[in-house]
Amino acid sequence: MIKLRFASPEMLVDINEIPDLGYHRIDADGSVHVGALCRHADLERSSLLATRQPTMAAAAPLVADPIVRNRGTLVGSLCHADPQGDWASVMVSLDGLVVAQGPRGRRTIAVKELVHGPFQTTLAYDEVVVEAIAPAPKGAPAGGYLKLERRVGDFATVGVAVSVDRTGDEVTRAGIGLTGVGGSTISADDAAQLLVGGPLTSDAIGEAAALAAQAAQPRTDHRGSASYKRHLVSVFTSRILTGLIRSQEEAA
């Protein structure tokens, strides 16, 4: 942004030297806490996420490219508020929060409320986000992230994050976040809500995929037509959810 001279900030504060922000951890309740300086690469290599937060684990290797992942951060991605950012969809699907800190102290903001337009957030000018939180799952967490990128490091033509918490067969909480199909990240609430309260069935998956596609607000551009992108939302939603049934069957 700065090198292309799209942005010319008068002052830039480097937070990299602030100690103790590079962490990510999972608390006893299962909530995931990611510090502002935790790099994408840390999440990609995290054994914690791999076993306990599958949606985040699925997305981490698909963010940017391997070199960029050594510098970029999840929190930075959320605050950049690019509608094509991967992490925002993931955190939306997890009903995630960010912790913002400023001279007036700390406050938490739902990721769904953080962004109000392309590259625009509700943060005050003197606030920084110090942590992102994926709240404790309501049951066993499952999910995934699928993205159409035409090569490594490409922005998503479409990305879909799905997270499903289950107790036994029953879905106790669900979230679906959509990347690249609107002016900001979209939370497909109706689609997610439809999944809650029963087992994942192919009928439910079909309906949820259709609702997710309806929630998308894609535009036709050089990456594809609006109808194609909408279609991909449906395909990806369906593929992730179908994969969950399959892995459940395999486990059983």
């Binding site: 292309l4 090569r151 490409d154 050089h222």
Partner: peptide, 16 residues
């Protein structure tokens, strides 16, 4: 011009 930098003008990586 669409394709004015390497985020839009795509060159393949070792992966693809």
């Amino acid at each position: 011009c669409i394709g004015s930098n390497f985020t839009d003008y795509l060159l393949p990586t070792a992966w693809e």
